[in-house]
Design a protein around this nucleic acid. Sequence first.
DNA 1: TTCCCATTGTTAAAATAATAACAATAATTT
DNA 2: AAATTATTGTTATTATTTTAACAATGGGAA
Lengths: 206, 206
Amino acid sequence: METLPDKTVERLSQYRRSLNNQLAKGKEHIFSHEIANLLHITSVQVRRDIMLIGYSGTLRKGYDIKELVHLIGVILDTDDGQKIAVIGMGNIGKGFIHYLYEKRSKLKIVAAFDINPEKIDKTYADVYCYHLDKLEEIIKKENIKIGIITTPPQVAPEIADKLANAGIKGILNYTPKPLSVPEDVYLEEYDMITSLEKVAYFVKEE
Amino acid sequence: METLPDKTVERLSQYRRSLNNQLAKGKEHIFSHEIANLLHITSVQVRRDIMLIGYSGTLRKGYDIKELVHLIGVILDTDDGQKIAVIGMGNIGKGFIHYLYEKRSKLKIVAAFDINPEKIDKTYADVYCYHLDKLEEIIKKENIKIGIITTPPQVAPEIADKLANAGIKGILNYTPKPLSVPEDVYLEEYDMITSLEKVAYFVKEE
DNA sequence: TTCCCATTGTTAAAATAATAACAATAATTT
DNA sequence: AAATTATTGTTATTATTTTAACAATGGGAA
Ligand SMILES: NC(=O)c1ccc[n+]([C@@H]2O[C@H](COP(=O)([O-])OP(=O)(O)OC[C@H]3O[C@@H](n4cnc5c(N)ncnc54)[C@H](O)[C@@H]3O)[C@@H](O)[C@H]2O)c1
Ligand SMILES: NC(=O)c1ccc[n+]([C@@H]2O[C@H](COP(=O)([O-])OP(=O)(O)OC[C@H]3O[C@@H](n4cnc5c(N)ncnc54)[C@H](O)[C@@H]3O)[C@@H](O)[C@H]2O)c1
């Protein structure tokens, strides 16, 4: 399949979560406008996204939730599940690990790294925390493909370099420091302060 | 000023942070392409954003950093600084408070709320944590206008209702539960798993 | 049966955002 | 002093994303 629009990919992830909730409640079919209500978007957008991934519902009955969840899985997940490392076991890093723990996601955090002796050689929700020096070794051995950076911002560029060298193919950067990565590494950055200042701006404009 | 594009607002916040870094390094003027490099975007975009906020640099000398930072402040900040409350003092809530602590931002977290007795009636980086029951009272008394929700997802809708009732005008929702709010409340939602699945998708597509 | 109507799937249009193009101009070089 | 260069500011173009429009269809009602 040719690559899907950025925003559609984001929504698919959200559809899946909501759909799984509905499945858990015993619902088997769902209409586009129902999905739309759950996510507070429009039903047109839902239908369009579903069209783009090549699924068809049945008229008057809507979409088969199980089938749709499965298809989203085919699109978003890899066959073997992608392995993830977290670098920086502070508030955010730990939060992430605990959050993913017990989620039945195909995405698995398999290693954590830090430099603080109090944090390393311990296990957090089944994830072992290594010293940063072991980064390359473990990433290669485990064939980890994605890294989440939750260190202090100053060291983020250095961590990004190390990750790229070790063969990581995707980085999620939670520090407010913008990073440069080689062309073949996909980079997603998120800055909480930006979100907050955005809210503040639009509140002010009312 | 007519409202700026969404994305421009996000970038202004980022410009300001980078510009302050440069100021701290003793730099007084900066070119559009320098700002662009810091943020890994194009210089055209920088110039366009700066045009939109009505600032002019001087040819060959670039932008006066201090002036630009000041103007971004005029746009993003309110006169008195906006007050913020955090609901849910877990990993993310605490992280946020510590992060904003000692930042010289006009945005001030002035109260936290939780229901866990171990968390309440304590102070975290100068922010006092109240029992959730006090929410409406404190928000009204302190004239808090923005709420950050970092509770478990199940209770998020209930918290959002309480916030809206108490007169909050902007909500930043970090739980994966989509919320509904009254028309006059600005809502920004962010879901870490969505970011992660997005990275995973684009890594897979390579 | 025949007609309505809810709902999908798809194409078309509009809105938003990013990029390119380029004119203007002030500093620097020749 | 003329030409060159670096840089801004702005308009035009292109790309992406969202929204609207509507034809198709099959279930249920009359
Ligand atoms: N931490 C992450 O990396 C991560 C990732 C994805 C999503 N999330 C989401 O972010 C949210 C917060 O995550 P976290 O790791 O900080 O969770 P956490 O469990 O550490 O913290 C939640 C806090 O909310 C409090 N709380 C519970 N019910 C409450 C109520 N009714 N009113 C007020 N406070 C209440 C709890 O006492 C606790 O202090 C969760 O919704 C989680 O799903 C977190
Ligand atoms: N927590 C928030 O709400 C929030 C908000 C905005 C931005 N941020 C950013 O997110 C990032 C993480 O925030 P946090 O609150 O989890 O920070 P934190 O200070 O709690 O955790 C940082 C962790 O990184 C480790 N570390 C330091 N240097 C390291 C290195 N070279 N290699 C590996 N690990 C190293 C530290 O030992 C610590 O465990 C920071 O960049 C922060 O600026 C956080």
